[in-house]
């Protein structure tokens, strides 16, 4: 399949996207930002619609828009005496409504917009791959450089504030990083499904390890392998790429759940099998 240029681009872009998403996914899961990820990715609809209507590359319009929405959610939840999920519910629906109005004003059925909703392997250009690489590099650099602060803030924000860490900077940085990661993923995976990439790998990691190093490793490995396998299956069976990647990811998550040392029923099952084996031999 790699003789086709579009698959080369999809695979190169896909790997970059999967790496960035799996790393951010760790924080999405431990800091409970799953709904935030969903909200910001759906808000991208507004950004994409504005970009298409204004003739700007939707990657950039959605990038700016999602970052603003993510920071807006963070700011309002800290200022406005509202819970984070309320703010997310308000801002992401409003952003989508704005997108619908912009599409309506453009007065034509936009096929392009549909491909942004569900993603397409055909959508990635080399320019997109390069843009994804640059933005993913920025996102990963932020995570590496501020890892200990991010970990502390995710674990126990109150003490992190008291010990003088730049908690606000770290929190807004994480939100902006998440927004960038979402934006580079929507062409391939689509607005509707991108939040799966931000939740499932981290959740898979948490099933198999009790330490963040292991969780991160499993998250990245499962993210990369589901992306590769998902793209391959979508090519072979001619089915939508984003959805296939998500299905593979979910399959790996189920597998991790069954194998998880956290689940005592599995341990009991293994033990009883072993004891049965010993008794029989």
């Amino acid at each position: 399949m790699l003789e086709y240029a579009f698959m080369q681009k999809a695979l190169a872009g896909g790997m970059i996207i999967a790496l960035a998403c799996s790393v951010i996914s760790f924080f999405v899961v431990v800091k409970r930002l799953a709904f935030m990820g969903m909200g910001v990715s759906h808000a991208a609809f507004g950004g994409v619609a504005i970009g298409l209507a204004a003739g700007v590359d939707p990657l950039w319009s959605a990038g700016g828009f999602c970052t603003l929405v993510a920071l807006g959610i963070g700011w309002l939840s800290r200022r406005g005496r509202m819970h984070e999920d309320t703010t997310i519910g308000i801002l992401f629906t409003t952003a989508m409504a704005l997108g619908v109005i912009v599409v309506g004003l453009a007065r034509r059925y936009n096929l392009d917009l549909m491909s942004y909703l569900f993603g397409s392997v055909l959508a990635m250009s080399w320019a997109d791959v390069i843009a994804a690489a640059v933005l993913a590099f920025i996102a990963l650099a932020f995570v590496v450089l501020f890892f200990k602060e991010l970990l502390f803030v995710s674990f126990d924000e109150e003490t992190a504030i008291a010990s003088g860490l730049p908690v606000r900077l770290v929190y807004y940085g994480l939100l902006a990083t998440m927004a960038l990661t979402i934006v580079i993923s929507i062409k391939l995976v689509g607005i509707i499904l991108v939040s799966a990439l931000l939740v499932i790998p981290g959740a898979t990691g948490l099933q198999l390890s009790r330490n963040y190093r292991g969780v991160l490793l499993v998250s990245v490995l499962s993210g990369l392998s589901s992306m590769a396998l998902g793209l391959y299956l979508s090519y072979r069976a001619d089915i939508p790429s984003g959805a296939t990647v998500v299905m593979v990811m979910f399959g790996l998550f189920l597998l991790a759940m069954v194998l998880s040392p956290r689940r005592s029923w599995m341990r009991r099952f293994v033990r009883s099998q072993r004891q049965g084996w010993i008794a029989n031999h």
């Binding site: 970990l151 502390f152 126990d156 109150e158 003490t159 992190a160 009790r210």
Partner: peptide
């Protein structure tokens, strides 16, 4: 400083060592 209750997630994947290392975070610097 030790707050009244450390409201942490019991499945948060960090060890005792990692938690204590968090205390050094502000000393190590960004």
């Amino acid at each position: 400083y030790m707050p009244q209750q450390v409201l942490f997630d019991p499945i948060f994947p960090v060890s005792v060592y990692d938690v204590v290392m968090m205390g050094r975070a502000c000393c190590i610097g960004p």
